[in-house]
Structures are given as C-alpha cells and as structure tokens.
Amino acid sequence: MAVIGDTLAARAPAAVFAAIGPGRQAGTERLFARRDMRRASTPRDASILLVAGDIPSEASEALARVHDQIPPPRATVQWQGEDPDRIVARVMETLKDLRVSATGEENRLPDAPPNEWKGIGPHGQGGKGMMGGTPYGRPMAMTGPDIRDGLQLDRYSARIGPFAPMLPPGLTLEVTLQGDVICDVSIDSPPFAQPADADAPDLCLARVLRLLGLDRAADRVLGGKRPGALWVQGAISRGLGRIDGTDMRDRVAAWRKGEAAPLGPFDLPRLLIGAEWSEAMLILASLPPSALIRAARAPEAA
C-alpha cells in the first residue's frame, strides 16, 4: 500500500479547489492548464484550497465555509502573485506533508447546524404535510406557478457563489429554481474586478470548453492550439444568450479565431430567467468577464 501511495498517487495531478480573488482570474486559469494541476469542481474532490489574491472581507465567511467543506486532512495555500512554478511546487509539498502527517487544518466555522431543529409535533417532526416545520432553520420550499406551464411546483431559493467554479469569481446570485428552471435571479454581489487579461479570447474559449466537460481541449487551447470548428459549434445550441443579434455560438466562433467579442450593455437577470440551469451556466460562460462585471454593477448604480 505504501508503495502505491508513494508512486501512483504522487504522480497524479493535484486536485485543488481554487478560490479566486480580485485580479487573479487569468493567472489562476492559466495555472490549471498545466498537466500537474487539476481544478476540482467541488471541495469534496480536493484536499488543498488555493486562495489566489486577497479575498474581500464580505466573502470571508463564504471562504470559511468552502474551507470547512474540504474533507480533512486539508491545507490552504495562499497565492500572492508568485511564479506559477513556485506555487505548484508549494502545492505538491503541502500535498506530500498531508499524506505523511495526516493532520490538517481545523474547522473555521462552528460544527453546529445554522439553527436548531424546530418542529410542531412531539418528536419535532414539523407541521402540516410536506410544507410544515423549519428543519434546522430552513423552511420547506413553498409552491408557486411554474413559469412554463403554470403547474404549482416548489420554489427552491439559494445563494450561489462567490466561489462556485462555474460562475465568475466573486459573483453571488440569489437564484430561485423550480426543478432546474431558473424562475428568479437577483445579483447579491458583482464579480471581483479583473484586469483586461481575463478577457483574452483563449481564456474565454477555454472557460466554455471546461464547462462543456472538455478539459483536455481547454488545456490545448491555452497551450496555443485551436479546436475544430464543427464539434465546438455543435456542442452549443443556437440562439443561446442572444444579445444585440449575436448569440453564444457567434461569440465562441470569434474567440476561436482569436478575436475579442465586444458586447453592448445587457440585463443579466433577464438573460438568465427562464433558462435551465445548464443553459444559464453556458450563457454566463459565454460572456467576457469585463462585460459581466459591467452588467452586474449596473443595477447597483441605478
């Protein structure tokens, strides 16, 4: 077993969950194009939390929650703009330490449910039917008319972000879902400010490819290769995220040619409401970070 642990496991790419701060999006995304690094899509999959840049104080509770969701033993690596080779070496070193010592960092948040269990019955079993009670401080979902066919279905609302890997770093959305259909969206906090290098066509294209599950292709794009036009276009349905007559296919085609895809102002919630979850995430990935930041800040200024 020790032999397996020392050789095979040590050679596998390190699964790292990345929490990206202001100005660090481009650097972090290029870091994960390396062969020896793998960006974990959930904390469950990772043992190392990479904190890139300075996380603003309003996101520190979310960072603590993500940290606690990484199964122990776990460790945090801070990245303040050092050379990528050095940060990879530090990640590998930390991973080796974890494997040897098996004592990681402690929880940052208290190990207690957000609220006590509260119910009406003698065993705290709730109120009437499926809609009663507030198990652990969270009420059961209540019904509302479905936006597609008017059936009365449960509405699930949650705050998603700021470190959700499919959203741009910093963006927190308050989403109300019925099944996987988004029926209401509001912006809790806009994405962290990023310099113009996050808008580079190859990064934008790689982001879309990663979301489509084509990790190797995304790595090749960041390595300077262009993917075939046919299968990238075929993976994206027509008319998705249409703004000023250009849809996601057009924007991806422009990025594939190495051109930027300029966008006029748009209303972000209006673009997402009515879309299924997977479509909404594709739409978000098809918008360059600078345009997203402008769109998310517009309602705040108004």
Partner: peptide
C-alpha cells in the same frame, strides 16, 4: 456545496 453560498429553503 453552493460555492460558499447557503440555501434559503430545505432541499426537499
């Protein structure tokens, strides 16, 4: 896991 966010309603 909601990327650091939290749910308002129960998942059921």
């Amino acid at each position: 896991f909601l990327g650091g966010g939290s749910a308002e309603t129960h998942a059921w």
